[in-house]
Every structure is written in structure tokens, then in C-alpha cells.
């Protein structure tokens, strides 16, 4: 058996989600090759070769792969699948965007966002905002799987797999990259951070969000998250949203500040090791999942907490 793992990266560094996907592929079994598709992504291919348990790295270069455009990724991956029994990708926006195209072309049902593996045809995945776990068995000959990062540990780095350069379809494709607005930050990345501080609607404005949530996160070396309400209101950028339809996080400690604890929000953070909630309403549902709850006005409690650390 052989599994192809699709690397997620930005042409400079390999994202941790890739290492987690390799761990999931190991639980599935068989030889593991990693595909790095990018532009000037040689360093990423080298890095992928260091992941424990990788047999070899396939490195494809081309304009359309700089941003891993879905059509190009489909054209690249589908023919490669002759040599593999399964393809695994992280359930990041890259994996979510590209993999269903591959599945459709292979005429198989994708198994999305798996949280567990019970053999080569049976997988666990959360449904209904994580309120139920479905175990599904696939009758398809080849498996197309996306992997929930918070459910698998990252594979280590002691390997020395060889890198093989492969040809990549050059198009033309019917979509083109125009521009990107990526916020550069020195903070840890939300989905892999050990600590996360999230703010909700109660912050009331972007100014207050930046004045209260950001310094606490900086003090803790934490990533910053937000509820949908806070993002919709413009207090925080869209990629900060934690929840069913945002990012799934499971840090060592999660601070929910002025967040009520709607099921859609809980779906994104309830696997955190320790949950701290600060909310002025003692009946707020967030307290039902919090290890430590502080009933207080956040405008007093948060500066106090930041000072106390």
C-alpha cells in the first residue's frame, strides 16, 4: 500500500498541518510519499524529506502552484493517483479547496476532516458542529481524505527521504491569482498554538479588542482568536474566527473572553486541554465547558490578568 500526502506550505516554510497529516497517514498504513507543489519551493521539499516516516518527496514546480490553485492541483494529483491507494491532505483551506476536485475526478467520495482512523476503510469524523461523531466505512477503491489537525500529533523530524522532481501540468487554467492580503505576524499560528486568547462581541470595538486581547496574548505568547460575532463586527480579521465554520483549535489553554459559548463556537475549541472563560453573565453557556470560570466584567478583569502575568 502507498499513501500520497499533500503538503501545505507557503513556498518558504512547510506548515505543521503537513506533519499531522503524515501521522494520520501512518495510522492508515503503507509507504508514505509527500507531494510538494509550489514555486521556488525547494526548501519546503527539503523540509518535507525530514519528516519521520516519509519514503520520498515528489517536488513539482510551476506558476499555478505558487498559490496551489485548485484546478492545477487537480491536474497534477489525479494522474499521480495511479500509484497510490490513498491521498491525504490537511483540512486547511488548501486541502478543503483542492481535494474534492481530486475525489470527483477519481469518482470517489471524499472523507472530510477525519478525527480518527480505524483501519484502511473506516474513519471517524465529527458532524453537526462536533455534536456527533460519525464512523464511516468507504467502499471506494481509492481513499481521498482530509485530516483534522487537532486530532493527530505532528510527526517528528529525523528522516532523510530523497526528493524527486516531477513534471507539473502548466495549464492554461481558467482561474488566475490576482492578489493576497496576508497578515504578517510574529505570533504563533492559531491552529497550532499552545495558547490561544479569543475575544467576543463583548469587546465592543476593534480598538478595545486591540487594547485588551492583544496585550494579554502577547504576555502569554499566545495566538489571538475571535468569535464569529467579533469577526463580523470587524473587531478582528476573518482568519481569526474559531468555530464550526472557522478554525479548529486545541491548545494547552484557551481563554474565551466575552464569548457566550454558542455551539458553533464550542465546535472549534472544546478539545482544548484547559478552558478559561471570563464573562459577566454567570449563566453563559461557555461556563459549562470551562475548567476555570471567572464571572467578571472583562474591562476590569483582562487588564488585571495581563498585569498579573
Amino acid at each position: 500500500m502507498a499513501v500520497l500526502v499533500i503538503a501545505d506550505h507557503d513556498n518558504e516554510s512547510l506548515f505543521d498541518a503537513t506533519h499531522k497529516t503524515v501521522t494520520a497517514a501512518q495510522a492508515f498504513g503503507g509507504d508514505i510519499d509527500v507531494l510538494v507543489a509550489g514555486k521556488d519551493a525547494g526548501a519546503v521539499a527539503e523540509a518535507a524529506g525530514k519528516i519521520d516516516g516519509v519514503r520520498k518527496v515528489l517536488h513539482a514546480e510551476g506558476e499555478a502552484y505558487e498559490k496551489q490553485l485548485a484546478e492545477a492541483m487537480e491536474a497534477l494529483i489525479v494522474p499521480l493517483m495511479d500509484g497510490y491507494d490513498a491521498v491525504f491532505a490537511p483540512a486547511t483551506t488548501m486541502g478543503k479547496n483542492c481535494m474534492p476536485r481530486v475525489a470527483a475526478k477519481l469518482d470517489v467520495m471524499q472523507i472530510s476532516d477525519i478525527s480518527g482512523i480505524e483501519g484502511t476503510d473506516t474513519f471517524e469524523r465529527p458532524i453537526y458542529a462536533g455534536n456527533a461523531i460519525m464512523t464511516v466505512k468507504s467502499s471506494d477503491a481509492k481513499k481521498v481524505v482530509t485530516v483534522r489537525g487537532t486530532s493527530f500529533d505532528a510527526a517528528g523530524e529525523g528522516g532523510s527521504a530523497s526528493v524527486e522532481t516531477i513534471d507539473a501540468p502548466a495549464g492554461p487554467f481558467k482561474s488566475a491569482f490576482v492578489e493576497e492580503k496576508i497578515v504578517q505576524s510574529d505570533r504563533p499560528e492559531l491552529t497550532s498554538a499552545k495558547r490561544v486568547v479569543s475575544g467576543g462581541r463583548a469587546l465592543g470595538s476593534k480598538e478595545e479588542f486591540d487594547r485588551l486581547i492583544v496585550p494579554l496574548a502577547d504576555k502569554l505568547g499566545a495566538a489571538v482568536g475571535a468569535s464569529r460575532a467579533a469577526v463580523d463586527a470587524g473587531y478582528a480579521p476573518n482568519d481569526y474566527q474559531v468555530g464550526q465554520t472557522g478554525k479548529i483549535v486545541a491548545p494547552e489553554v484557551y481563554f474565551a473572553i466575552g464569548i457566550s459559548g454558542a455551539i458553533q463556537h464550542l465546535a472549534g475549541m472544546k478539545d482544548s486541554k484547559v478552558i478559561v472563560a471570563i464573562n459577566k453573565d454567570e449563566e453563559a453557556p461557555i461556563f459549562q465547558v470551562a475548567d476555570y470560570g471567572l464571572v467578571a466584567d472583562l474591562f476590569n478583569a483582562v487588564p488585571e490578568l495581563t498585569d498579573a502575568l
Binding site: V108, M109, I111, T122, P126, I127, G130, N131, A132, I133, M134, T135, V136, K137, S138, S139, D140, K270, I275, V276, E282, F287, Q288, V289, A290, D291, Y292, G293, L294, V295, A296, A301, E304, L305, A308, L309
Partner: peptide, 27 residues
């Protein structure tokens, strides 16, 4: 269907923890 549902189960439930009095106790 290509996928058959083996089972659908409850996720592990989280217990509510404790309330703390103030920031000092939280820390």
C-alpha cells in the same frame, strides 16, 4: 452511497469546572 455509516456516537462530554473568585485565584 459509497460511504456507509458504521455508527454515530456522542463525543466525549466536557464537565463544567470551577468558578474562581478573582483574577489572583485564576492565575
Amino acid at each position: 452511497a459509497r460511504l456507509s455509516v458504521v455508527k454515530v456516537t456522542e463525543p466525549p462530554q466536557r464537565e463544567a469546572g470551577e468558578k474562581v473568585e478573582d483574577v489572583a485565584e485564576l492565575v
